[in-house]
Write a protein that binds this DNA or RNA. Structure first.
Lengths: 221, 221
DNA sequence: GCTATGAATTATGAATACAAAATACAACTT
DNA sequence: AAGTTGTATTTTGTATTCATAATTCATAGC
């Protein structure tokens, strides 16, 4: 496989690269909530100076992933129960809107594609493959979001779900919850295929509310 | 009037102060959309070095108020029609959620306070004082938001409305629109006072949709 | 006269240097 | 021994410097 020598050369600014890497590390749980982030350490780890690192930190702080305390540095933002209680209803409202818009704009091809993923996801559920299930679940949500044709909305959703994504590690769904989630997804897909925006909105909102319950249960035990 | 000499001394970091000032300048229209922001000029204007200024810029870029193009500087983000089309439905969804939550948590005292403001706002309408009307309108929205008891939601709303606030300057409501807006506010207040969350949500969503129309009309003429 | 090429200028990106605040710790007091 | 004070160290905040990319402008070629 040869590379395209005529492709545009792109060199991103360091602060961008750093922000992406750190964001990934936080969202994927490689950096624990509450962990102190020393500028010096991170600089030597990434081999950059403090200037671009600090710029990246400002971005992450604005996104709510990191907490900047004047004169005493930076910590990974903690996820409290209150945070989840705040975030999930918002995500519910945004998902509901996404669904409504998606029903307006989605193409048949997109629906087919989602159906494919949906069926594969159900099979992952039947096989008990939680990790794969999550991945497909996420892809479906992404596609619905894309079908809403609203980049601003997509970006806000992404940002919010990034913040709470860390909670997933703690949230190992009970079998009952999982079964229920799959049933919900079934209905969600049906509403989408029927392009019933109102119904889809309600379903998604409820789905998110249930998700919150699942996560909270897993957290408080 | 004496000052409290025992009050905690607070010195904010420069990047914070800068971000606030620049945000204000952009949102209030002192910096025109599309305007190039030269680091050097801003530095001499504020009397600071480029480091904290650049940090502030990263924050504003994340908030969507400013556009950072690698190696060629920073411009005030433009507000396109598409941006408005994207932002208003989101604001509608968030307002709807705020309203629903507010109905759950609002106290009688808060309702009384809002009623006061509402009545004053109506009088400003009758007097044709648009500026004052807007101010009161905004305060009411703020109070509803506060009653929703969801800081994350409040913060997202604030950020979004900051982005589109600049459109207001162009949007000089027609008398007919204004009359209609006041009527809508009347109903909104009634629903809130009755703590009818579902109804309030619908009203707020519609209100925002109408607002979008108003702004778009004003823009395209 | 117009385009294209290249040097000079300017602006941005990143690293270093310096200043100030916070933390850690030792010595002292009680 | 517990607490307090002062000093050393570390870390963060800001300014400055150096490097590199973009822009401007003048000149050469057609």
């Amino acid at each position: 496989m040869s590379i395209d020598v005529a492709a545009p050369i792109q060199r991103r600014p360091l602060h961008n690269e750093l922000a992406d890497r750190l964001r990934h590390m936080i969202v994927e749980g490689e950096l624990a909530p509450g962990e102190k982030l020393s500028e010096k350490d991170l600089c030597s780890q990434f081999g950059v100076s403090r200037t671009p690192l600090r710029e990246a930190m400002k971005v992450l702080a604005t996104e709510g992933l990191v907490l900047l305390t004047p004169n005493r540095g930076c910590t990974v933002a903690k996820l409290t129960l209150a945070d989840l209680d705040e975030a999930f209803p918002i995500m519910g409202a945004l998902e509901a809107l996404s669904g409504e818009l998606a029903c307006r704009y989605i193409t048949d091809a997109e629906i087919t594609r989602i159906q494919e993923l949906h069926e594969r996801m159900v099979r992952k559920y039947e096989a008990g493959a939680l990790r794969d299930y999550f991945k497909l679940n996420e892809q479906i949500h992404q596609l619905i979001l894309a079908a809403a044709r609203n980049p601003t909305l997509a970006q806000m959703q992404l940002s919010l779900s990034g913040r709470v994504r860390r909670a997933r590690y703690m949230a190992n769904m009970s079998p009952a919850r999982w079964t229920r989630a799959v049933a919900e997804h079934e209905k969600i897909f049906e509403a989408l295929a029927a392009r019933d925006g109102k119904r889809l909105a309600v379903l998604l909102k409820e789905h998110l509310a249930n998700k919150l319950q699942t996560v909270k249960e897993a957290l408080t035990e």
